[in-house]
Measured scan of single mutants.
Amino acid sequence: MSIQHFRVALIPFFAAFCLPVFAHPETLVKVKDAEDQLGARVGYIELDLNSGKILESFRPEERFPMMSTFKVLLCGAVLSRVDAGQEQLGRRIHYSQNDLVEYSPVTEKHLTDGMTVRELCSAAITMSDNTAANLLLTTIGGPKELTAFLHNMGDHVTRLDRWEPELNEAIPNDERDTTMPAAMATTLRKLLTGELLTLASRQQLIDWMEADKVAGPLLRSALPAGWFIADKSGAGERGSRGIIAALGPDGKPSRIVVIYTTGSQATMDERNRQIAEIGASLIKHW
């Protein structure tokens, strides 16, 4: 067993022997301040990774656009098919120029040779490549099948209805392509620590998230040296922004954090800054 596999296998073990965790309302004060600064709703939840206990939450059962955070769930569904012998990570998928959609920095470079399922998941999570996500959605049967996968996990809230990039439209009061912070946090925890996926697939999923290259201005910008984070960000229309993450000190994750916002007129930089400040408060009061 590799060191990384050992780390993920012992996530519940280490967490069980940690000192009790206590909620700190100071972080919620910052979440509410972010709402004021952005002029928009902000949803927040913080779960203990081992027990699933909610440590703090704000608007945990209000719907927010998922945006690209759905790509972690998508690759979880792909990995479940791999575990069941219905898919192979090494299978190569070929596609054409007509398949390319807006923001496809990886797939646009491989029109000639195609990409493997493993490479597509890596591109979808680490670079948020939209064509990679659409190609992977095709392998599982489309958005409705991802929703069905989530329902089978016990998540009857999260739903995907459309493809990239239309799913980022974020129309107010439109339930399409949305989740709730509580539902997303619980589902992410199941994917990373539950028995739904094999140990190898859980490790692969967290490795992809740990290698995320496009979430630097968010929670990662607030992390002290030595902290662990595996995350996936999302951005959408109407001032929408979000991030889902597993993080913790001492090089291992111990909490799940989900943050979503929508309806702001603020710039992307300002949305990023507010999420980073929430992260800084979380870490300060850990």
Rank of each mutant, 00 (worst) to 15 (best):
F6W: 08
E145C: 12
I3E: 06
P60D: 15
Q204C: 14
N168L: 05
F149S: 07
P181L: 03
D269E: 15
F22L: 13
I171C: 14
Y44H: 03
C75W: 00
I3F: 10
R238Y: 13
H285D: 07
L28E: 06
P105M: 06
W163Q: 09
S104L: 01
Q88I: 11
L188R: 00
E61F: 10
F22H: 15
M184T: 03
L219R: 03
E237W: 10
E277D: 12
L188W: 04
M268V: 09
I278W: 02
L282D: 01
L188Y: 08
I140M: 07
D231S: 05
C18P: 05
P25D: 09
L167G: 05
I243C: 08
R41K: 15
C121Q: 02
A222C: 15
N130I: 01
C121W: 00
D231F: 03
A245V: 05
T126M: 09
D174R: 03
T187H: 05
K32D: 05
P65Q: 03
A266K: 13
Q265H: 15
E237Y: 12
A280I: 14
L135D: 01
R63A: 07
P224I: 03
L192G: 02
D250H: 14
P253Q: 08
D33P: 01
I54Y: 09
S2P: 09
M67Q: 08
Y260R: 00
T198R: 09
K53T: 15
R63T: 09
T107M: 05
E145I: 10
R91V: 05
D177A: 02
V258R: 00
A266T: 12
W227M: 03
Q88H: 15
S96E: 13
S122C: 08
V31T: 06
S96I: 10
I259H: 00
E102Q: 15
D33S: 10
I3N: 14
E62F: 07
P105S: 05
A77E: 09
H94K: 14
D212N: 07
D161S: 07
V31H: 01
R159L: 06
W163E: 11
S104A: 08
T187A: 09
G142H: 04
T261D: 01
K190C: 10
F149M: 11
T267Y: 08
E35L: 02
G194T: 15
K284Y: 14
A266L: 14
A222P: 10
Y44Q: 01
S80A: 11
T69Y: 03
I3A: 07
P224T: 06
A132R: 00
L49M: 15
S104I: 02
G279R: 01
T126Q: 09
F6T: 06
Y103E: 03
A225H: 14
E277G: 10
R189A: 13
A148W: 09
M268D: 06
A9P: 14
T126W: 04
H151R: 14
T198K: 13
T69M: 03
G251L: 09
H156I: 15
Y260P: 00
M115A: 06
M180T: 15
V8M: 11
I45M: 13
G216A: 11
N130L: 01
T126N: 07
F149V: 09
L282H: 02
T131L: 06
F228C: 07
R91Q: 07
I244W: 00
P143K: 03
V31A: 08
G142R: 04
A40S: 10
R241F: 02
A235P: 00
T179Q: 00
T139Q: 13
V82P: 01
K190Q: 12
L197G: 04
A170L: 08
T179A: 03
A23Y: 04
L192K: 01
R162Y: 03
F58Y: 15
Y44G: 02
L150K: 00
I140P: 01
S2M: 12
R189I: 07
T198H: 12
K232L: 00
R241A: 04
Q86H: 13
Q204A: 12
Q265S: 15
V82D: 05
D212P: 04
M66T: 06
A77L: 11
T112Y: 15
R81F: 10
V31I: 11
L120V: 05
F14N: 02
A84H: 12
Q203M: 14
T267L: 10
R238E: 08
A34D: 02
T262P: 01
P105R: 05
L10D: 03
I206K: 12
C121G: 05
S233C: 02
E175I: 14
A34K: 04
V31E: 01
L247P: 00
E210G: 10
Q37N: 15
V8I: 14
K284N: 12
P165C: 09
W227T: 02
L19N: 15
S68R: 00
F149R: 07
L196T: 15
L223F: 05
G279M: 04
A84V: 13
G279Y: 03
K252F: 10
F22K: 09
I229K: 02
I3P: 14
S51A: 08
S240L: 02
L28T: 09
L150Y: 08
R162F: 03
N134Y: 04
I54L: 14
L28A: 10
H151D: 09
L73P: 09
G216D: 08
K213N: 11
R273V: 10
A123H: 03
V82G: 05
G194P: 11
K32H: 12
P12K: 08
D174H: 04
S264F: 04
Y103D: 05
V31C: 13
Y95H: 05
T147N: 11
T187D: 12
A235V: 05
G154P: 04
L196E: 15
P253I: 10
Q265N: 09
L100R: 05
V21Y: 05
G248T: 01
F149Q: 07
S264V: 05
L136R: 00
S57Y: 11
V72Q: 02
P181S: 05
K30R: 11
A215E: 04
I283M: 11
L146W: 05
R7W: 08
K109I: 11
A84N: 14
K252I: 12
G142N: 06
K30Q: 09
R220Y: 02
P105N: 05
A77M: 11
S128W: 00
E270V: 12
D212I: 02
G234V: 00
A170R: 08
T139K: 08
T112G: 13
D36A: 15
L167D: 03
P143S: 06
D177S: 02
V42P: 00
A9E: 06
L73G: 07
T69V: 03
D207G: 14
W286P: 02
G90P: 08
G226A: 09
L120H: 03
T178D: 02
A215C: 04
T107D: 01
R81V: 06
I3C: 10
R92S: 10
E87N: 05
Y95I: 11
V82C: 11
T139D: 11
R189W: 13
S240G: 12
R7Y: 09
T267N: 12
I125P: 00
M115L: 13
S233D: 00
N98S: 14
N98C: 07
L218P: 03
M127W: 13
D207L: 12
L111D: 07
T138S: 14
D174N: 06
D83G: 05
N130G: 05
R41C: 06
N50F: 12
Q204T: 14
L135K: 05
V31G: 02
S281E: 14
G114N: 05
H110K: 12
R118E: 15
G85V: 06
I93R: 03
G85F: 06
E166T: 11
Q88L: 12
E108K: 11
L196Y: 15
A215P: 05
T138L: 10
L197A: 04
Q86L: 13
A245T: 05
I283R: 06
H110P: 03
D207C: 10
Q203N: 13
M153W: 15
D161P: 01
S201D: 02
T187L: 08
K232C: 01
P181K: 00
M66C: 08
L150F: 09
H110N: 08
